[in-house]
Computed example of a mutant assay.
Amino acid sequence: MSNLYWLTEVQMARLRPYFPKSRGLPRVDDRRILSGIIFINRNVLRWCDAPAAYGPPKTLYNRWKRWSDMGVFARIMTGLAAEAPDNKTISIDATYLKAHRTASSLGLKRGRGRLIGPTKGGMNTKLHAVTDTSGRPIRLFITAGQVSDYTGAMALLSSFPNAEWLLADRGYDADWFREALSERGTRPCIPGRASRKKVVRCDKRRYKRRNRIERMFGRLKDWRRVATRYDRCPRVFLSAIALAATVIFWL
């Protein structure tokens, strides 16, 4: 098939430092297996429907599941992002990812424990992300759909890189968040809520750059496995998001 996805040798050279060490027998060809994993995730195929060029489907699935549980794909994304830091102005935002019935059923009631929750649009998972100046993701975090944006901000705050500015919408307008950013030496560019008694100034010209994180979410959702969650395990789903971010923005 001419439309199969293959990693190049240059890309593999960047990825290999983040692979876990092989024990015992040498691993099956990493380039072939990882290319097959990317192809399956991008097109939302069943593992048994993987093209024969990528080898046995069971080998693809076993590598995907084992490395997802180890957090390898998340480390790859953060590691590649750290190689070329561009953090003068960072952004934070969140988006909803639709949870398919296969992800939220056959387990705990209404998907509890799987980071799936009810919203106006149905059962969703919320993806919280931090991007660099160019709009590339550098930190990812997922919660249930009904969870506040503040929860994601609190979880990601300690991992923020040193930045001069942080862009966010008014959903992140909280005094504790502004104070935490100031302590880190980061100036917030966040519009104030309408309910605020004291007006908060915001650099509107700089705030326009926040559209980069919105475009980043749109590109991630081009991968069908990210736009719709089919995985019951949140760790595996986060690995799928990290893999998509790596391929789209960092390779």
Results as ranks from 00 to 15, higher is better:
T8A: 08
E9K: 09
V10I: 13
Q11K: 13
Q11N: 08
A13S: 06
R14S: 09
L15C: 02
L15E: 06
R16H: 09
P17E: 07
P17M: 14
Y18H: 08
Y18Q: 10
F19V: 11
K21T: 07
K21L: 03
K21C: 13
S22M: 14
S22E: 14
S22P: 00
S22H: 11
R23C: 10
R23L: 15
R23T: 14
L25C: 14
L25G: 09
L25N: 02
P26K: 11
P26T: 07
R27K: 10
R27V: 02
R27Q: 10
R27Y: 13
V28A: 02
V28Q: 12
D29A: 11
R31V: 02
I33M: 08
I33F: 00
L34K: 00
L34V: 04
L34A: 07
S35F: 09
G36I: 00
G36D: 01
I37H: 10
I37W: 04
I37S: 00
I38L: 07
I38W: 08
F39G: 00
F39H: 10
I40A: 01
I40R: 04
I40Q: 04
I40M: 07
N41G: 13
R42T: 09
R42V: 13
N43E: 15
N43L: 13
N43S: 15
N43I: 10
V44M: 12
V44R: 13
V44Q: 07
L45C: 06
L45F: 04
L45R: 01
R46Y: 12
R46T: 15
W47C: 02
C48W: 07
D49G: 12
D49T: 13
D49Q: 13
A50W: 02
A50T: 13
P51R: 03
A52I: 09
A52H: 14
Y54I: 05
Y54G: 03
Y54H: 01
Y54E: 00
G55I: 03
G55C: 11
P56V: 05
P56W: 09
P56F: 09
P57A: 06
P57Q: 14
K58Y: 14
K58C: 09
T59N: 09
L60S: 01
L60K: 02
L60F: 10
Y61W: 04
N62Y: 07
N62D: 15
N62F: 03
W64P: 08
K65L: 15
K65V: 01
K65Q: 14
R66W: 01
R66K: 06
W67R: 02
S68H: 03
S68R: 00
D69I: 12
M70G: 11
M70P: 02
M70R: 13
G71T: 09
G71M: 05
G71Q: 08
V72F: 11
F73V: 12
F73P: 02
A74H: 10
A74T: 04
A74I: 04
R75W: 06
R75Y: 06
R75T: 05
I76V: 03
I76N: 05
I76S: 00
I76Y: 03
M77Q: 04
G79I: 01
E83L: 08
A84G: 12
P85A: 01
D86S: 01
N87H: 12
K88M: 13
T89D: 08
T89H: 09
T89A: 05
S91R: 05
S91D: 05
I92Q: 01
I92E: 00
